[in-house]
Amino acid sequence: MPDGAPAEPEAATLDPAQSEILATLEAELGEGVIEHTDALGNLVVRVRPEAWRRSAEVAKAMLGCDYLSFVAGIDWLPAPAPGGDDDAGVEPSAPVQPTEMTFGAAGSEGRFQVFAHVQSTARHHGVTLKTDVDEAKPLAESWVSVYPGADWHERECWEMFGIGFDGHPSLRHLFLPGDFEGHPLRKDFPLLAREVKPWPGLVDVEAMPEPDPEPEPGAVP
């Protein structure tokens, strides 16, 4: 169902498995759980930054979530307006996103968030955990001591968003060359190719071919 209301804690109806997961998290983390919701069948729980690593430990030890799917970041700053919509009638070359800052399921405190998904291979359930990251000093706790696979995911998150991870063995570039400047997935990192020229597919430069001339009456087809 469309989730239209932004940043409002929803009294979502959870199924029994999700309620159990939520109850365990609330029992172990106490004040650490801020909000929760059900996003199209997926339980999303937002926890405080200081409870981030503890929530991973609880998921692994008590919820049986032995499988780490991913750890990633998100920047809620509104997307920049696409070029090419100066004149009226000229179609913008990229989708136009809303200009006000709204947040997703289970809300957010600010611009940056780190979110992760863990699953249980035996009990066939999973949970998405989110936490807020301070924009002035982007730092989150590292999950490497709980899930060793988080090593590369956190390196990618640092590289793309600039979010540091406290306790990570070595935060260095993963995808980009060593001398790359900037954090590409931030919304204020401009995609220069799009600024310089709009998407070439919008405007047809070649004229359509002339239609075939009418055959003369009596001519053999």
């Binding site: 990192f189 995609l191 220069l192 190719a193 799009r194 998407w199 070439p200």
Partner: peptide, 9 residues
């Protein structure tokens, strides 16, 4: 990938 930040055109 003509508009990517990491691809040589």
């Amino acid at each position: 990938y003509w508009d990517s930040y990491s691809v040589t055109k």
